[in-house]
């Protein structure tokens, strides 16, 4: 591919990927790491332009996921600890109207196995179907569906465990039917 063609292809593909990848990263790491990994992800896409499949986005999520894992490994090596890549560990600078509810959801997600939490994130937040999730994670759509089923079931169980007893129970039950 000539340099001109490379640029044209990248310019046709990359702009639409930036925002989804940013959100993907914002859901999984701190803002500074997200910035770094976004640049790194774009770089990998640029270098692997010949490998980009017709379905850009799941592939790009897979690249971002890999870059994020690398970044977190590097951070651990530098003893800048990121204990768990879950929203439980996210910095609390993102303002929310219903903070308590999100804390609860975050805590419940943190109790799931990481692979179960990840299929839920990809399904609900990235709004991918089982086939696309399979492309991101390197799994069959069937395996994703099974994992999603377990993840939902286990998350509901964790949320029930977290429902506070006593006076707040009623309102919580109202929110978490």
């Amino acid at each position: 591919m000539s340099p001109d063609h490379r640029r044209a292809k990248f310019e046709a593909i990359a702009p639409a990927l930036i925002e989804p990848i940013r959100r993907f990263l914002a859901r999984r790491t701190d803002a500074a790491t997200a910035d770094d990994v976004l640049s790194e992800t774009l770089l990998v896409i640029w270098r692997r332009l010949d490998d980009v499949p017709a379905e850009h986005l799941p592939w790009a999520y897979g690249v971002a996921r890999h870059c994020l894992a690398n970044a977190h490994r590097a951070q651990r090596r530098q003893e800048r600890l990121l204990a768990r890549i879950t929203m439980l560990d996210r910095p609390s600078d993102i303002s929310r109207v219903s903070g308590a509810l999100e804390d609860q959801v975050g805590e419940a997600m943190g109790q799931l196995r990481p692979d179960e939490a990840e299929v839920l994130r990809l399904s609900v937040w990235e709004q991918l179907g089982p086939t696309e999730i399979g492309q991101v994670l390197g799994l069959s759509a069937n395996a994703v569906s099974i994992r999603l089923y377990r993840a939902r079931r286990n998350l509901k169980t964790e949320l029930r465990k977290l429902a506070p007893p006593g006076g707040h129970e009623e309102s919580t039950r109202g929110r978490l039917p």
Binding site: I18, E19, R22, R23, F24, A26, R27, M87, R90, I94, S95, R96, S98, L101, E102, V105, G106, L120, S123, V124, W125, R152, L155, K156, L159, R175, L176, P177
Partner: peptide, 18 residues
């Protein structure tokens, strides 16, 4: 219900576009 709950807790919901 579960999905609605998760969507409410989306950490990227307030992320302003570049």
């Amino acid at each position: 219900d579960l999905e609605a709950l998760l969507r409410q807790a989306d950490p990227a919901a307030d992320l302003a576009p570049l």
